[in-house]
């Protein structure tokens, strides 16, 4: 049965799009037919992160308005056989997405995909609500920082009360915490909230910890989801998170300060 995952946070700039691209690609890598849907109307960016920006012809809003079929709008990934992207519209009309229209598209996607990954816009208004409304599971992306943690908690409240599952009295959305942009060095100095702190406050299951990493910028520069950079810390951390999402038990990595090599220490090189 198809599963709808929403990648959400409340706060902007915490890593939702980076995460949607990585997790969606990771699911496809493991053989699951996956589509990543950009809900950020007016601020389309998933296409750039996935490296398919020049192949967008039709978008999500075109499909809702009946200007294109879903088949026409789905962009097939060039690297992976079973990975697709549905781009957001660049329209400035905030009401371009409707609950009814989104519901229809989700139903149609359910028929041909195993995983539907919804990349939510920031905020807790209409766009973010539509992105999470039909979800079965939620990945709450949080940075170890006060405003991000608070916004995540507000989003958890909305997931529990304003989603389709909540309204219909079904089993609640399964919530996962993904802590991103984690800097072990600053945590060890007491300058940044640690994993345990955030876990204790939000009290939901920890899916993974993604370290602050230069690999993320490099990957986005090239339009390659960072999970495909298998050598990188962030890529490996996302890979573990996907395995956990699929039910594997794995220890969390990249939580401790990496010891610098002698040369790095001598020349003050940055990792």
């Amino acid at each position: 049965m198809a599963k709808i995952l929403v990648v959400t946070s409340g706060k902007g700039g915490v890593g939702k799009t980076t995460t949607s691209a990585a997790i969606g690609t990771g699911l496809a890598l493991r053989g699951h037919k996956t589509v990543i849907v950009d809900f950020d109307v007016g601020l389309r960016n998933l296409d750039l992160i996935m490296g398919c920006e020049r192949r967008v012809v039709y978008d999500f809003v075109n499909v809702i308005n009946g200007e294109a079929t879903l088949t026409q709008a789905l962009i097939k990934d060039k690297r992976l056989e079973n990975l697709y992207v549905l781009a957001a519209s660049q329209t400035r009309d905030k009401d371009a997405l409707t609950l009814e229209g989104v519901g229809k598209v989700m139903d149609e996607l359910r028929e041909s995909f195993e995983y539907i990954v919804c990349d939510s816009p920031a905020g807790i208004e209409k766009g973010a609500h539509l992105a999470m409304y039909f979800a079965d599971e939620a990945i709450v992306v949080t940075n170890p920082e006060v405003s991000s943690v608070r916004d995540s908690d507000r989003m958890l409240g909305l997931l529990a009360s304003k989603s389709r599952r909540a309204e219909q009295g079904e089993e609640p959305i399964k919530e996962h915490l993904l802590l991103t942009r984690y800097n072990p060095e600053r945590v060890s100095k007491g300058e940044m909230l640690g994993v345990e702190d955030v876990e204790e406050i939000l009290a939901i299951r920890l899916l993974g910890v993604i370290p602050e990493s230069q690999a993320v910028l490099k990957a986005s520069n090239q339009g390659v989801p960072v999970i495909l950079d298998e050598q990188s810390d962030a890529g490996q951390a996302y890979s573990d998170a996907v395995d956990r999402l699929l039910g594997k038990e794995l220890p969390h990595r990249f939580l401790d300060v990496q010891k610098k090599g002698l040369l790095q220490r001598l020349f003050g090189g940055r990792e």
Partner: peptide, 18 residues
Amino acid sequence: SSAAVAKERLQIIVAHER
């Protein structure tokens, strides 16, 4: 530490908002 202060403040505001 400043992280400890952050945690304390968060615990209070989050409990209130819940």
